[in-house]
Amino acid sequence: MKFSVKFLLSATSPSHFPAPSVPEVAFLGRSNVGKSSLINALLGETVARVSSTPGRTRAINFFALHNNPNTPPKMIFADLPGYGYAKISKSISAEWPSFIEPYLTERETLALAVCLVDTNIPPQPSDSMLIDFLQQHQRPYIVVGTKADRLSNNTLAKSIAALKREHQVDNVIPCTVNKQNGTKALWSALLAALPA
């Protein structure tokens, strides 16, 4: 998929959110799981800042995707702050529920949450908590396994099976940003989630 992409804004409060308009896709996951890298791979350009330091994204960053620059956006990507990194100050972590939870639970234009999990490490309780949270609030979501290129096919299959079992989900889409493997399947899932 090829879109004309425009950065809209960074929000640290519900009052900062853009006015609801088109369907939104939220990208969530632990710090350093590869949210920004995956967004860039999907869009075919560097729009989301990638940092080797976990916890750099501390706001929800909104990106509008246009079929061409002169038309209204078709959808919006929302890059959310990561969680589960111990070195992030408690004061910042304490602020997150004030704007992330309202976004996930109350945002009327949120069409899909993309939950990123790392295929290179064992299933994490914090990821299960996120999935449970989305289920409790009846929010549509999919689970994507990042960094799949670092594993052999056999090891990756075992990792995906463990993630599905531990997180109690039917499907985990393996993705790599370097070889673009899995991005086509992910685009299909994203577009299928959009209202007709």
Rank of each mutant, 00 (worst) to 15 (best):
G44D: 10
K179P: 00
V117G: 02
L163K: 04
A193D: 06
E108W: 00
L43I: 11
L38E: 05
A41T: 14
H137N: 15
K6C: 05
P195F: 09
G182W: 08
P122R: 10
P174G: 08
S15M: 09
E106V: 01
V114N: 07
L186M: 10
T53P: 04
A192Q: 13
P20T: 00
E101W: 13
L156M: 03
A48K: 09
P14L: 06
S91P: 02
A162I: 01
T176H: 07
R139C: 07
P123E: 01
C175N: 05
H66P: 10
A19D: 10
P14D: 08
F63N: 00
S188D: 15
I39Y: 02
A113N: 08
L9G: 01
A113Q: 06
P20R: 06
P23L: 01
P123R: 06
A19S: 11
V50G: 04
T46S: 14
L116R: 08
K164C: 10
K158M: 09
N181P: 00
A59W: 05
T57I: 04
S98A: 12
S128N: 13
V5I: 15
P23T: 02
N40D: 01
L134M: 13
M129K: 14
K158C: 05
A193C: 07
T46C: 09
N67Y: 07
F3I: 10
I121L: 02
P81I: 04
T109Y: 06
H16Q: 11
A48G: 04
I121D: 08
S31P: 08
E166M: 11
N120W: 00
V47T: 13
V143C: 09
P54V: 01
P195W: 10
I160W: 05
P140R: 03
